Amino acid sequence: MHTTPHTEAAPPSADRREQSGLEGLRREIDAIDNALLELLNRRASASLAAGAVKREQGSPVFRPEREELLMETLLEKNSGPLPSTHLRTIYREILSSSRALQNPLKVAFLGPEGTFSHMAATEFLGNSMDFWAMPRFDDIFKAVENRDCGLGVIPLENSLHGTIVQSIDLFAAHAVHIQAEWFSRISHSLMSREAALAGIKTVYSHPQALGQCAGWLRANLPQAELISVDSTAAAAHKVLAERNAAAVGHGSLAPRLGLAVLARSIEDTSDNWTRFVCIGPEPAPAPASGQAGSGEDGAVKTSVLFTLADKPGALANVLQCFAAAGVNMNKLESRPMHLERWKYIFFCDVSCDLTDTKHAPLLDIVREHCHSFRILGAYPAGRYMQKGSGA
Score class of each variant (00 low, 15 high):
residue 297 D to F: 15
residue 173 A to G: 06
residue 363 L to F: 09
residue 62 F to D: 03
residue 267 E to S: 00
residue 225 E to L: 14
residue 10 A to F: 07
residue 141 F to H: 04
residue 58 G to V: 01
residue 382 G to K: 06
residue 221 L to P: 03
residue 381 A to Q: 11
residue 125 L to A: 04
residue 192 S to P: 01
residue 302 T to V: 04
residue 28 E to K: 15
residue 357 T to Y: 02
residue 240 L to S: 07
residue 268 D to M: 00
residue 298 G to F: 01
residue 343 K to W: 06
residue 103 N to Y: 05
residue 247 A to L: 03
residue 223 Q to V: 10
residue 372 S to N: 11
residue 48 L to K: 14
residue 313 G to K: 15
residue 240 L to V: 13
residue 112 P to K: 05
residue 33 D to E: 13
residue 388 G to N: 14
residue 116 F to H: 05
residue 83 P to G: 07
residue 194 E to D: 08
residue 208 Q to D: 12
residue 334 S to E: 15
residue 81 P to E: 01
residue 301 K to P: 04
residue 143 A to W: 05
residue 361 P to F: 11
residue 44 A to K: 09
residue 231 S to W: 05
residue 210 L to Y: 06
residue 292 A to D: 09
residue 290 G to T: 14
residue 330 N to V: 02
residue 364 D to Q: 15
residue 53 V to E: 15
residue 94 I to C: 02
residue 140 I to R: 08
residue 26 R to K: 14
residue 135 P to F: 03
residue 327 V to L: 02
residue 11 P to D: 07
residue 271 D to W: 10
residue 172 A to C: 01
residue 284 A to F: 08
residue 283 P to H: 13
residue 306 F to C: 06
residue 45 S to G: 12
residue 39 L to G: 08
residue 57 Q to M: 11
residue 23 E to K: 10
residue 140 I to Q: 00
residue 345 I to H: 07
residue 244 N to S: 03
residue 83 P to N: 11
residue 187 S to N: 09
residue 211 G to F: 01
residue 67 E to Y: 06
residue 386 Q to F: 11
residue 346 F to P: 01
residue 237 H to C: 13
residue 86 H to E: 14
residue 72 E to P: 04
residue 8 E to Q: 12
residue 53 V to D: 12
residue 60 P to T: 04
residue 270 S to C: 05
residue 175 A to I: 01
residue 227 I to W: 02
residue 274 T to I: 00
residue 148 D to L: 03
residue 206 H to K: 09
residue 110 L to D: 10
residue 80 G to T: 14
residue 326 G to M: 00
residue 35 A to E: 12
residue 89 T to P: 00
residue 45 S to W: 12
residue 60 P to E: 03
residue 179 Q to Y: 09
residue 241 A to D: 10
residue 137 F to I: 05
residue 293 G to V: 07
residue 102 Q to Y: 02
residue 9 A to C: 11
residue 383 R to M: 09
residue 383 R to C: 06
residue 78 N to S: 10
residue 275 R to M: 06
residue 229 V to F: 01
residue 43 R to L: 15
residue 35 A to C: 04
residue 79 S to P: 03
residue 389 S to R: 15
residue 221 L to H: 04
residue 243 R to V: 08
residue 94 I to Q: 03
residue 121 A to V: 11
residue 242 E to I: 13
residue 317 N to I: 05
residue 195 A to L: 07
residue 153 V to T: 08
residue 250 H to K: 00
residue 159 S to E: 07
residue 217 L to H: 06
residue 220 N to A: 01
residue 65 E to W: 14
residue 63 R to L: 12
residue 54 K to F: 10
residue 187 S to M: 06
residue 41 N to M: 13
residue 62 F to L: 04
residue 351 S to Q: 13
residue 43 R to S: 13
residue 228 S to K: 09
residue 95 L to A: 04
residue 252 S to Q: 15
residue 224 A to G: 03
residue 183 F to H: 08
residue 343 K to R: 15
residue 3 T to Y: 12
residue 355 T to N: 00
residue 89 T to R: 14
residue 379 Y to K: 14
